[in-house]
């Protein structure tokens, strides 16, 4: 169990430039945003923290929100509570639905959107949702920066490709008029459902035709389950979909889930996932 420690070195940069130069001088300094992921499994009286920490949540430059007609930009330290307050009129509603499924208001007042994306060992609840929405993120390090789409930041095993010296500073979420947006946690049972399977589906229709369709499962570890072939096959179909098409998609999807994540999902979860897709597809145009 960790004890009271004066040996933890806490840095409190005054600006983003200070933070970037601190990371250059001391690459092993770890970032502490809301701290709710860092602390969440540590229930000792004194939490065990890494020896060098940079506290970043107070930096105004990382809390900015900027909206244009085409996208909304969120600083990495915007809290989940703040995004929830802005609401589904301004921000894609599916993101708001996902945020409301995380912890409780006193957790969301600390938790940041950047911290949700940057957890190394798990793809947390917002990652698949933001990925589906084609979110791009700005990554900065001293002397350089790059923009990358979330799709490119994860490999097939779900590993995150953000280097230890990079800081995720901003996210840019395109604003598209999705007619259907749905997020749902599929609880594994009566125990805590914090890391249970989650479903996210978005779709657009125009005059009875499906013009875009995307869906993804996440939250149970590193791997995200998304099958772009099934998605592409559905686009340009008439909605509501026919019963026999729904059954065929259900079968394809179940086979895909069983093949891609055989040990990760229980048979109950595979069944729930299939039903979720079927329900979402059946709701389109209905």
């Amino acid at each position: 169990m960790a004890a009271a420690s004066e040996r933890i070195n806490v840095f409190r940069p005054r600006t983003l430039a200070d933070l970037l130069s601190l990371k250059r001088r001391k690459p092993d300094v770890s970032l502490f945003a809301g701290g709710t992921y860092i602390l969440q499994n540590d229930t000792g009286k004194y939490p065990e923290l890494l020896p060098a920490i940079a506290s970043i949540r107070h930096l105004d430059e990382l809390k900015r929100i900027h909206r244009t007609e085409r996208y909304i930009e969120l600083g990495c330290c915007v809290s989940l509570a703040e995004i929830n307050r802005i609401g589904g009129e301004t921000i894609p509603d599916v993101l708001i639905q996902a945020i409301r499924s995380i912890g409780s208001p006193p957790v969301r007042s600390l938790a940041t959107i950047g911290g949700n994306i940057c957890a190394r060992d798990k793809r947390l609840t917002l990652f698949p949702v933001l990925l589906l929405l084609d979110t791009r993120v700005e990554l900065r390090e001293h002397g350089g920066s790059r923009w990358a789409s979330l799709t490119r930041l994860v490999d097939a095993e779900g590993n995150l490709h953000i280097s230890e010296t990079e800081i995720l500073t901003r996210l840019r979420i395109p604003l598209v008029d999705w007619n259907y947006q749905y997020h749902r946690r599929l609880s594994a049972g009566p125990v805590s459902d914090r890391w249970s399977l989650s479903f996210c589906g978005i779709a657009s229709t125009n005059r009875g035709i499906l013009t875009d369709f995307r869906c993804i499962f996440g939250s149970m570890g590193k791997v995200l389950l998304r099958n772009r072939e099934i998605e592409a096959e559905l686009v340009s179909r008439k909605v509501p979909l026919l019963e026999r098409d729904l059954s065929a998609i259900y079968r394809d999807f179940e086979a895909y889930v069983k093949e891609s994540a055989p040990s990760m999902l229980s048979p109950f979860q595979v069944g729930m996932a299939g039903k979720m897709i079927r329900w979402f597809l059946a709701s389109l145009g209905a």
Binding site: V10, R12, F32, G34, G35, T36, L39, Q40, P47, L49, I53, S55, R57, H58, A81, P105, P106, V107, S109, L110
Partner: peptide, 14 residues
């Protein structure tokens, strides 16, 4: 904002 104070190591309260 309502906050769980157990999740705040004191340095973050600065």
């Amino acid at each position: 904002e309502l906050t769980h104070s157990c999740l705040v190591p004191v340095f973050a309260a600065q």
